[in-house]
Design a protein around this nucleic acid. Structure first.
Lengths: 216, 216, 216, 216
DNA sequence: TATGAATGAGACTTCATTCAT
DNA sequence: GATGAATGAAGTCTCATTCAT
C-alpha cells in the first residue's frame, strides 16, 4: 500500500536530529532530551534556553548542536518519541481478540488506553501544544500516521464502508477525542473521571451511527 | 445566580488593557489590534515584535505601552474580542423558536453558526492556539463562559438532567467540537465539507444519547 | 546631467546607517566610529568584535545597533567618510588657476594631493582593502563618483577627446594610481619617496600621450 | 646572486603545507584545493568552513588538517600555486627573441600574457584580494619574486640604468598594472577590451620614458 | 499625556581545531 | 597514518520595556 509508505516517509523526512549509535553518545542525547522535557514543561518552551539545557544535561553546548541543529529540533525529537509510543499503543489493538469485542467495550478499551498513555506521560500536553504552534507540520505528519492506523483498525472490525469514511471517522476521533484527553489532564480528579465517561459516550455513539449492527 | 456573576467577573478581572474613550485613542488602539492580528497570524506571535506592530499601526511605541502593559496583553485583547463575538453568537440561540427545533435541526444550526464564525474570522486559529500556550488562564475563563452559555441553552431545551450533566455536555461540545472546527479550516474544501457533516453527526448522536425523547 | 545624479544616488542608496541629529547621539556615533577605525586597523576587521567596539566607546551594544544595522555598516560608514573627504579634495582642483597649469605641474599637484591625503589618514589602507573584500558594491559606487569627478576635471583642461576616453583615462588613473598610493604607505620612507616620483612619471606620460599639445 | 636566493628562500620559508608524495594523498590534496578555490570564490574566504571543504572534497576533516596546519594554509597554498604559474609565465619572456622586440611589441606581449593568465584563472582575483588582507606577508614575498624577475628582464633589454631603477620600475609595473588586470576582469567585455589598450598605453609610455632609444 | 531613544541581558549558533581511538 | 566526534569560547544581534523629556 503505497499510501502508508508515503505517510511514513513523510514523517521521517521531517526528522532533523541524529540518533547516535555509540552508547556514550546515546546516553548524552537521552540526557539532553530528559532535561529538555522537564524544562519545557516547567518553564515553557521559549523560557528554556539551549545553554541551560546543555548545562543541566552536563553536555557541552557544541555537543548538543551536533545532534540537534536547533532548539526546535529538540522539541521535535521529544514529540516524535511520544508519537511513536502512542502509535505503538494503537498497534496493540490490532488483534483478533480485541477486534471482536462488542463496540461498547471496544471503545472503552481504546479510550482507557489513551487515557492511561496521557496519565503516564504528564507534561506531554505542554509539548504537544507547543509543537502545534511551533512545528505544525510535524504534528500534521504524526497525526496522519495515527489516523491511518485507526482507520485500519476500524476497517478490520467492519469493512462495509468506503475508504474515505474510515479516514473521516479516524480523523474526527483522533483529533477531537485526543483534544479532550489532553484537556482532561488539567481538570480536577472528579471532573476528569466524568470527562472520561463523556469521551467514551461521545465516541461510542459516533461509532455506533456508522456500525449499527454491532450492539453495545 | 452568583456563579454566573463570578465567572463573568473572573474574566473581567483578567482584562489587562484599557479601552480608551477618546475617539483618536480608540482609533489607535483599534489600529494596533488590527495590525497585531495580521502579524500574529502571518509571522507568529513571538516573531511579531511590539516595535513592528507600533510602527505598522503608525503609533509610537510608548503609546502602545500606555494601553497594553505588555505584549501578551495585545494577544489577550484580541482573544477577548473574538470570544465576546462568539459568545454573542451563542446568545442568539436563546430564542423560543430555536429551542423548539427538532434536535437534528438544532444541532445543524449550532454547528453551522460556529462554522460560519470561524470562516469569517480566519487566522483566529493561530490566535486561539497561542493563547492556549501563552495565556491559558484567559482561555480557561473565556471557555468557561461559553460553556455556561451552552449549558443554559441545553437546559432550556430539556431540563430533566442534573446541573453537572449540562456542564459536562457543554464542556465536551465546546472543547472538542470547537477543536474540530478550527482544524477544518486548514483542510481542502471537499474534506472540509465532509468534516462539517461529521461534526454534526458526532454532536447529534452525543446529544441524542442524553435527550432521547426529541426525535431528529 | 542625469548620470551624475544617478551615480550620487546610487551611493546614497547604499547607506545603511543613521546619522543622528542630537548632539549627544552624534558624539556617541563618532566615538563608535573612532574606536572601530582603530580596532579595524590594529586587529583587523574580523578580529574586532562589535561588543569590544561598544565597550571601548562606552556605549551599550544595543545603542550601537540602533545606529548601525550590523557590523559591516560600521565599516561602510568609515569608508564613506573617507571617500567623501577624498572626493572633496578632488573638487578643489576645479579652479581655473589649476586647470591652466602645465601638465607636468598639474600631475604633480594631483599626485601630491592624493599622497598627502593618504599620509594624513594612515590605516585607511586597511579599511579600503577590507571594503573591497567585504562590501565591493560600496567601493564600486564610491570609485565611480571619483572617476566621474576626475573625468570632468580632465575635460576642463582639454575637451578634444570623446566622453568615453575621459572615462577610460579617469578609471585607469583612479584605480591604478590609487593602488600605488596605498602601496607606498607600507614602504620604507626612501622607497616611498621614489615611488611618489614614479607615480608622477607614470601619470604624466600617460596623460601626455592623450594631450600632446600641453608641454611639460 | 645571494639576493635572489634569499628572496626565494623567504618565500619557501613561509610555506606551511605539505605536498604529499603518494598518489592517493596527492589526489586528496588536489581535491581539497579545488574545492577550497571554488568555495573561496563563490562564498568568500570566511564563509567557507573547513568542515564544508573537507566534506565536499570527500576527505575526512582530520586528514585535511594533516596537510594544512590551519585554514589560512589552504588559502596560502592556492595563492602560491597561482604565483608560481604567473612567475613561470614571466620566465618565458627570458628569450633573446623577445628581448629584441621593439618596445611597443614587447609591452603588448607582456600585457597580453598577463591578461590571458587572468582570463584563464578567473576568480583568482578573490583569492589574491583575500591573501592581501589575511596573509600580507605571503603576497609580499610572492610579489617580490615577480618584481625581481621583471627587473631582470628589463635589464636584459637595456642595462644602462641603476639597479634601484629597475626595481622601482618593476614594482610599479607589477603592482599597478596587475591591479588593473584584476579590475578588468569584472568589467563588461567592451570596456574590458578598452582597458587592455589603456594598460598597454600606460605601460608603454612609462617604459619609453626610461628607454627612449628603443623606438616603438 | 505622549514620545521614542536607550538599554543590556542573554538568545541561539558557529567553527577551527584537537586527540582518543 | 587516518578518522570524525567532541569542544566551548565567542560571535552577532534582538527586543520587551523604561523613563527622561
Amino acid at each position: 500500500m503505497p499510501k502508508k509508505i508515503l505517510e511514513k516517509s513523510s514523517k521521517e523526512a521531517l526528522r532533523r536530529w541524529r540518533k547516535p549509535k555509540q552508547a556514550r553518545s546515546l546516553a548524552r542525547v537521552n540526557r539532553i532530551l530528559d532535561v529538555a522535557e522537564t524544562m519545557f514543561i516547567e518553564q515553557g518552551y521559549s523560557a528554556a534556553t539551549t545553554k541551560a539545557i546543555a548545562a543541566q544535561a552536563e553536555v557541552p553546548i557544541g555537543t548538543l548542536y551536533q545532534f540537534f541543529p536547533d532548539k526546535a529540533a529538540i522539541l521535535q525529537a521529544l514529540a516524535e518519541q511520544y508519537y511513536d509510543l502512542l502509535q505503538a499503543q494503537f498497534k496493540t489493538f490490532d488483534s483478533d481478540e480485541i477486534v471482536q469485542l462488542p463496540l461498547k467495550n471496544y471503545v472503552e478499551q481504546i479510550v482507557e488506553m489513551v487515557d492511561q498513555f496521557f496519565a503516564e506521560h504528564p507534561g506531554q500536553y505542554a509539548i504537544f501544544m507547543e509543537v502545534q504552534v511551533t512545528l505544525p507540520e510535524v504534528e500534521e505528519a504524526a497525526d496522519a500516521e495515527l489516523i491511518q492506523t485507526l482507520a485500519e483498525l476500524l476497517r478490520r472490525r467492519d469493512d462495509s464502508l468506503q475508504a474515505e469514511d474510515y479516514e473521516a471517522i479516524a480523523f474526527v476521533t483522533v483529533k477531537a477525542i485526543g483534544n479532550l484527553h489532553w484537556l482532561s489532564l488539567g481538570q480536577p480528579p472528579q471532573f476528569r473521571q466524568r470527562l472520561l465517561e463523556e469521551i467514551k459516550r461521545l465516541t461510542f455513539h459516533y461509532f455506533q451511527s456508522y456500525f449499527p449492527g454491532k450492539l453495545s
